[in-house]
């Protein structure tokens, strides 16, 4: 569980996060949604400890990142996995090398133990024939799978995904979304996913936090998001013609 209390963050004159408070639950895919530029990535980088909040606090199961010693911070980091928006695979390493990298850095496992573990997580994300390929040789969807495999190879307690389905076709996007949700359940991870994709909300949104201009405008579940009267939320949710039509049909059906 991650508790976010009144987090503020600005860069120079740009005031990005203006007092965010919320809780991300364990064993759930928590979604942070909002338009591009609303501060989702900045929030996730605060959760990761890459940015420190100007004000407010973030606690990971009671540990407040900013109050930990550098060594404790490093230990906490090793409990976190991150899937970056563009996958951020190391392009000088093979798929297998990417997945083994955290093990090589932080464990004393033998080469064959690391191979086995990498093979296991790569199979878990349904990739079993790309071990020796380089990131530039595989598709965007496969890169995402590798990024997920790398993020879970150390058995993290927390998994963060920044727009995991951006740049993917709708079908692949749904597969990736479901994979993230399955892994979250299977290993009982606290997962936070940034997205602006309503399909993800429909698929995996158990808890949803809606950001607008650096403020938490709304939060709730996926059932609630379709019923809310909050205008900012409905404008966001029903911005596509498809969802407008679905809503119209829903209202007509009710009357």
């Amino acid at each position: 569980m991650i508790e976010v209390k009144n987090v503020h963050k600005s860069f120079g004159d740009a005031y990005i996060l203006k007092g965010i408070s919320t809780v991300f639950d364990k064993g759930k895919t928590n979604l942070v949604i909002g338009q591009s530029g609303s501060g989702k990535t900045v929030l996730i980088k605060c959760l990761l400890g890459l940015f420190s909040p100007d004000k407010g606090s973030i606690s990971h199961d009671g540990k407040i990142y900013s109050q930990l010693s550098p060594k404790e911070q490093r230990n906490l980091r090793q409990d976190m996995g991150m899937v970056f928006q563009g996958s951020a695979l190391f392009d000088s390493m093979t798929v297998e090398g990417n997945v083994m990298f955290p093990l090589e850095m932080f464990t004393k496992q033998s080469q064959s133990e690391m191979r086995d573990r990498a093979d296991f997580v790569l199979k878990r994300v349904n990739l079993d024939d790309a071990h020796k390929k380089y990131p530039s040789e595989i598709s965007g969807g496969m890169q995402k799978r590798v990024a997920i495999a790398r993020a879970i190879v150390m058995n993290p307690k927390y998994l963060f995904c920044d727009e995991p389905n951006s740049g993917l076709d709708p079908r692949t996007a749904i597969i990736i979304d479901n994979l993230i949700q399955e892994i979250t359940k299977e290993y009982d991870i606290t997962t936070v996913v940034n997205t602006h994709d309503m399909n993800s909300v429909m698929e995996i949104g158990e808890k949803i936090v809606f950001l607008k201009n650096g403020i938490k405008e709304w939060e709730g579940t996926k059932d609630e998001i379709f019923k809310t009267d909050n205008e900012a939320v409905t404008n966001f949710v029903y911005s596509s013609e498809l969802f407008k039509k679905v809503r119209q049909m829903y209202i007509e059906e009710r009357n």
Binding site: K45, Q73, R77, M82, G86, A88, L89, F106
Partner: peptide, 13 residues
């Protein structure tokens, strides 16, 4: 720019 450096730092490298 491809966030590979962020990826290293997230891992604690």
């Amino acid at each position: 720019v491809t966030e590979q450096i962020d990826a290293l730092e997230v891992m604690g490298v």
